[in-house]
């Protein structure tokens, strides 16, 4: 065995061992984070979490925050889904390979990773400030404004998946419909969107998973509220915002509540991403 050969073998062995170690390190952090969230979260789980509101502080629960989160997420998805699906359809069907289409597809990818806190400030400027001056200060922060902020974060996710899924639909399907004289809008609404339906649902689920853990943009839009409210024009609590607030509190009981909230959010997000994978894999089977 020559020295050169030996050196190359050792270099190879060391590099591959390091790559395995890097993977182990990544997995270790995953396990560490999930384990702490599960351990501390389950320890703090309690029925009052779901029945009492945050106004009781240490003796309270997170009921208003959970309801608030559901409402704000729903508003966000309800705004982002139609706009995102239509915009994604335009990219895939009307503007594929046009200059404007390529530019918007490109910018959408940038919006996908834009800092959410800046989007929150944007919504603060275009929703919270005008509402404040329109109602002369009676309404300021609102669950609706929080929903708009989350919609901006969900939008690029939905645009991208819709665009990608529609481009996967075989063009023979389009040609068959067009040769029968079907107008393009009917072709799009009744045939293409249906063919790509499960892909689009996956996109919406992914977007929901993404926004349900978002905290930063909600701090200056929905703000938070210690009482239960169903009115989207009220200040509204949300789980991530209450977690943020409680984790910064010096009290241990508050930390336990924050962990319980973190556990609920994590479970929700993980279940959503599992569900989106399930929807997509079922679709793949049906195409074969």
């Amino acid at each position: 065995m020559s020295a050169l050969y030996l050196r190359r073998r050792i270099a190879n062995w060391v590099a591959l061992a390091l790559s395995g170690l890097a993977t182990l390190l990544g997995l270790a952090f995953l396990v560490w984070i999930l384990w702490e969230t599960l351990r501390q979260g389950i320890a703090a789980l309690d029925l009052k979490l779901f029945t009492k509101i945050t106004a009781y502080g240490e003796d309270g629960g997170l009921a208003n925050a959970m309801v608030g989160s559901l409402i704000i997420d729903f508003i966000g998805i309800a705004i982002a889904t139609p706009i995102g699906v239509l915009a994604g359809t335009w990219l895939a069907e009307y503007a594929n390979r046009t200059r404007l289409g390529e530019a918007i597809r490109f910018l959408n990818d940038i919006l996908l990773s834009a800092p959410s806190i800046v989007l929150g400030l944007f919504v603060y400027t275009i929703v919270v400030l005008p509402i404040t001056s329109l109602t002369s200060g009676n309404t300021t922060f609102s669950g609706f404004a929080g929903g708009v902020a989350l919609a901006l974060i969900a939008l690029p996710v939905i645009v991208r998946t819709t665009d990608e899924m529609l481009r996967l639909v075989p063009s023979t399907l389009r040609e068959a419909a067009l040769s029968l004289g079907v107008p393009q809008w009917k072709l799009t609404c009744q045939i293409l969107v249906r063919a790509a339906r499960s892909g689009i649902i996956t996109g919406v689920l992914l977007a929901l998973a993404r926004i349900s853990g978002e905290t930063a943009p909600l701090l200056f839009t929905a703000f938070g509220n210690n009482y239960m409210t169903l009115n989207p024009l009220d200040k509204m609590a949300s789980l991530p915002q209450v977690i943020y607030q409680y984790a910064n509190d010096p009290g241990d009981a508050m930390h336990a509540l924050a962990w319980a909230g973190a556990f609920v959010v994590t479970m929700f997000v993980l279940l959503l991403s599992l569900a989106s994978r399930f929807v997509l894999s079922r679709n793949k089977v049906s195409h074969e």
């Binding site: 984070i33 998973a209 984790a247 959010v265 994590t266 997000v269 991403s273």
Partner: peptide, 9 residues
């Protein structure tokens, strides 16, 4: 997929 607030906590 883990929300950033969980990383924060």
């Amino acid at each position: 997929g883990i929300p950033s607030i969980i990383y924060g906590m």
